[in-house]
């Protein structure tokens, strides 16, 4: 049997989802953003909700998210994606509405919007990429940057006296009565990629069940910002980020 015999549509087991278009993503090689984009697009295809989904892109690396997933998008001011999503969902209750936000967007400048949106229990999904760094602006310290972790604005490593503690937003959001599903996942290996995809699917499904807000944090890498290869970034994340931001469901009701 030759390769050409195997490479036949009838033998297909995996291909890029059609919800993701052919535009090459601007993310760096090996970036977790790309993996999560792919998973969201796959879930949209599986749920067959391309015509009913509206995404809200943040400011940060994912500001161009709209270019790759073929759905209607709005792009929010820095930190305000949950406010846009609130209005979109309230006015279009039969649509699936999600925000896609990084740690600077969701956990620094948009803290108030994030907390109040979750507290109101808006029926939206929030996908939160936590890579502990400001990727787009060139690797500055984020609210989730670990103690001791280096960034361009903490060149000798973050210290508590100067910058306070890393902020565990997801843990905080799990305390709010408005959230129904709060989970922390990662995409650094196949098993975790599968779990993250399930979580994304559940969050989008929840948004139609009038249960409240679903939050999926994805502990992520930024190999350019961390100055490591993608594979080393995954290892570093496993050894350093995940102990500080342990994976798993914090709330599921």
């Amino acid at each position: 049997m030759t390769l050409n015999d195997i490479i036949d549509p009838k033998n297909l087991v995996y291909a890029k989802t059609k919800v993701m278009n052919d535009t090459p993503m601007h993310y760096c090689p090996g970036c977790s953003h790309s993996v999560v984009h792919k998973l969201i697009a796959e879930v949209i295809e599986e749920l067959d909700i391309q015509d009913k989904t509206i995404g809200i892109a943040p400011v940060g690396c994912a500001v161009f998210g709209y270019k790759y997933i073929d759905i209607d998008w709005q792009q929010a001011a820095h930190g305000r994606a949950p406010s846009l999503a609130t209005a979109v969902k309230r006015l279009l209750p039969d649509r699936y509405v999600f925000t896609y936000q990084g740690d600077g967007d969701l956990a620094a400048i948009g803290t108030a919007e994030t907390i109040h949106t979750c507290n109101r229990g808006e029926n939206i999904a929030i996908f939160f990429i936590n890579n502990g760094i400001y990727g787009m602006t060139g690797g500055q310290m984020a609210p989730t940057t670990l103690n001791g972790m280096k960034s361009t604005t903490s060149p000798s490593g973050r210290t508590v006296p100067l910058s306070g503690h890393p902020l565990d937003m997801t843990k905080l959001l799990a305390q709010l009565d408005g959230t129904c599903y709060v989970t922390r996942q990662s995409v650094h290996n196949i098993a975790n990629i599968r779990k993250t995809k399930k979580a994304i699917k559940k969050a989008l499904e929840n948004s139609m069940l009038d249960k409240g807000t679903s939050v999926v944090e994805i502990v992520s890498t930024c190999s350019a910002g961390w100055n490591m290869t993608p594979a080393d970034s995954n290892n570093w994340m496993e050894q350093n980020m995940i102990p500080a931001y342990p994976l798993g469901d914090m709330k599921d009701i």
């Binding site: 087991v13 995996y14 890029k16 993503m25 953003h33 196949i190």
Partner: peptide, 22 residues
């Protein structure tokens, strides 16, 4: 073996996988 592990992890959705039982 067509397990698609490569395709699942590929961030940029570059890999198409085919498999036959032969």
């Amino acid at each position: 073996v067509g397990c698609a592990a490569c395709a699942y992890v590929c961030p940029d959705a570059c890999i198409t996988v085919y498999k036959v039982k032969n």
